[in-house]
């Protein structure tokens, strides 16, 4: 009797979760269509279809394939990647405040970008193509530095130690950035500030290609590890008792999360909020089981960034609001609303 009830509860939750996932997917498609239509030159849905199947004018094809599509694809990819990366961080650290920034990814990338901009003579074309590389190197290097600083022989890695080390290193880098900020000339500062606020400016297929391998490999890998993450969530001792190789799994998951976040940050700048709020939203919509929660995070993150990017392009035409700002402005109120409504 008792048992059937438990099973049916699981079943309803799964069904509910699948409904949520499909609703999110439909919303992303709708947003996609709206986003393609948003911009200085508008394309009607019919023109869009025509252009997609190769029957549009040259101008329409240029706009769609060279400007809008890569940008939209990028925003979907980084949204998904950052949200899943945040979900992994929150799962491994078992801390609600964890996000990709915890391993210093934003700080590392930001510091490198700032260093480069402040020592590069002009903001000409060269650094724009170098920037993602530099940002990625900074992010990955910082994550590795934090991990090795927190590593202790015989004890491996304890989440709490990693967390505190991460906070400290990130604070140090922010301090260095403040010092650099003050001696930067205003034009360059404006450039760096826009970068830090998070804006999707890599709008060519080159960036999509550089992003794609990370996401195609790491996203399925993390979702495949969902069951391991469920076990890790029970606490280290329980997980060890259940036969999980805790340290090894933690390392693999964190490495995957760093790869996802660093490749996204390189293209988009500091859209950190997605990684914090995406997983929480997902958890509130589909429950804590990672099999559902991770895909839901990915979809939510993608939806959030594509929506934010569309709004950011729309409001102050022809200038743009950095996507990171819009993400926080639309994501935070919804999150606060959910927080006030649901029981923890």
């Amino acid at each position: 009797m008792q048992r059937t009830r438990v099973v049916s509860f699981e079943e309803t939750r799964r069904k509910h979760g699948l409904t949520v996932l499909s609703v999110l997917a439909v919303l992303i498609i709708i947003m996609f269509i709206i986003s393609v239509n948003t911009g200085y030159i508008r394309l009607t849905p019919l023109e869009l279809l025509n252009t997609l199947f190769g029957k549009g004018t040259d101008k329409q094809e240029l706009i769609l394939f060279q400007f809008r599509l890569p940008r939209i694809v990028i925003s979907i990819l980084i949204g998904a990647a950052l949200a899943v990366s945040g979900a992994v961080m929150q799962g491994v650290f078992r801390n609600d405040l964890a996000d990709p920034g915890i391993l210093g990814i934003n700080a590392g990338a930001g510091l490198m970008v700032m260093l480069m901009v402040s020592f590069y003579p002009t903001t000409s074309a060269a650094p724009v193509y170098l920037l993602p590389v530099v940002a990625f190197v900074g992010a990955a290097f910082t994550a590795a530095l934090i991990y090795s600083l927190a590593y202790k022989r015989h004890q491996g890695i304890a989440p709490i130690r990693l967390l505190l080390t991460g906070v400290a290193v990130a604070a140090g880098m922010s301090a260095a950035m403040i010092v650099l900020t003050l001696r930067l000339d205003p034009d360059k500062y404006q450039f760096v500030a826009t970068w830090l606020a998070g804006s999707i400016w890599g709008t060519s297929w080159k960036f999509v290609l550089s992003l794609l391998p990370w996401i195609v490999i790491l996203l399925p890998y993390v979702i495949y590890k969902a069951r391991v993450m469920n076990v890790l969530n029970l606490g280290e001792q329980t997980a060890t008792g259940l036969g999980a190789h805790v340290t090894r799994e933690q390392f693999r998951l964190l490495a995957a999360a760093v790869g996802l976040a660093a490749s996204s940050v390189a293209v988009s700048g500091g859209i950190g909020f997605v990684g914090l709020v995406g997983p929480h939203l997902a958890r509130r919509l589909v429950g804590p089981k990672h099999q559902l929660m991770l895909p839901a995070s990915a979809l939510l993150g993608a939806l959030l960034v594509i929506t934010a990017d569309t709004i950011g392009r729309r409001i102050l035409q022809p200038s743009e609001i950095p996507t990171g700002i819009v993400v926080a402005v639309i994501g935070a109120p919804y999150f606060l609303y959910l927080l006030a409504r649901t029981k923890s």
Binding site: L97, F273, P322, G324, I325, V329, G331, A332, P333, L339
Partner: peptide
Amino acid sequence: LAGAAFSALLSALSEG
């Protein structure tokens, strides 16, 4: 959570 989200919102607005 409320603190983190609301701080993020305000910082984003000030950045904007």
